[in-house]
Design a protein around this nucleic acid. Sequence first.
DNA 1: GTGTGACGTAAACAACCGTTTACTTATCCG
DNA 2: CGGATAAGTAAACGGTTGTTTACGTCACAC
Lengths: 199, 199
Amino acid sequence: MDTLHGMTQPPRRRDAAGTRQALLAAARHRFATNGYAATTVRDIADEAGVNVALISRYFESKEGLFEACLTGAVDEIGHSVAAGIPLDDLPRIMVEKMLDDQAGKHRLLLLLRTAGDPAADQVRRNVLRTIAERLVASAGLDAPDAVLRAEMVLATALGLVLMRSTIAVEPMASVDQEDLVEPLGDVITALLRPSPRAS
Amino acid sequence: MDTLHGMTQPPRRRDAAGTRQALLAAARHRFATNGYAATTVRDIADEAGVNVALISRYFESKEGLFEACLTGAVDEIGHSVAAGIPLDDLPRIMVEKMLDDQAGKHRLLLLLRTAGDPAADQVRRNVLRTIAERLVASAGLDAPDAVLRAEMVLATALGLVLMRSTIAVEPMASVDQEDLVEPLGDVITALLRPSPRAS
DNA sequence: GTGTGACGTAAACAACCGTTTACTTATCCG
DNA sequence: CGGATAAGTAAACGGTTGTTTACGTCACAC
């Protein structure tokens, strides 16, 4: 990645696939951090170090570029969240996937960004529903509200990323990610442990 | 299409305070549901049934109108979330405040909308921090990570509103709000109960 | 070498943005 | 009344948006 931000670069070789990836990376970053409407195609092109017209050429439109970002993120999320993870390992894995690198954070944030496209909204709903059902399977639950509870785990994760990055409220934003594992584990246990609620 | 929401009304009297409120209501609705950048001043003016120029007159600018919406929401949140609420009553109160009426939902969503204004971001951080500290006081906690855990409760609440309204993932979106009380109570208990974690 | 097609760019495009100006009209006090 | 002032509006402003067009220029087969 020789052409990121304002860094001066060797005169740029011609490589369609490469610039396509550069545009995708820049768009993921901008869309995730600033949202769809607040991001201009010139912002993305500048960050990728290429001309604006290439967005229309490679992705047809700004909305096409956004959809490419979203489906890419959805694929990566789908691959990294496998079924059959032991419940005890879940909190640490979630914290690592969501907060370890920038990419994981941006993937999650992209799920919250909307471009007004109904198709994109459906993609969003599907991936969250699918992940929730995998969590239910991993926990071995069969209660009628199991999926609802799994989605509440995801709600906690989404809110966590938001408060840590976008909103940046203290102490949540600056605390070591290790300190998030235990409380998140408590939440997961409370929501997904097979029979925690007596009557 | 005389005034609010298209509802026909008496031909609109001249009332500065009234139109100011109409603009505020329309702006809260649009900003909360569509975000700051995706909302145009003409959208807001049309929904309020007044002319665009009045936004600049009464609130100086689009950003001024947004700040007025945000501080208004922050005030109402601050008033409705008192300190000293019994931990057992908290989940039901939170569900009612956040999901009962549209207004509560919009107040929460406004906290997630950003206009690029640093002052607004600070307001956001302050109110979340303050609410978290009130939760700690209500729970009677003094653990070093108490505020962090309280903020995680708020993260769950924010994620819940997002998944129920903006993302609208099933079954979270369509389930009766009563069914959210018990799982939310489990989360609050797991995070805020004075001594749940042995050593 | 050379030309041919893909890659990249600069400039222009119409449409829309937030904001301002110039103007009309209702309301109220004397 | 009647005119002064506040409330509201229509239209235009410069700037920015996403997109397209027209034009260089590098790379590679021959």
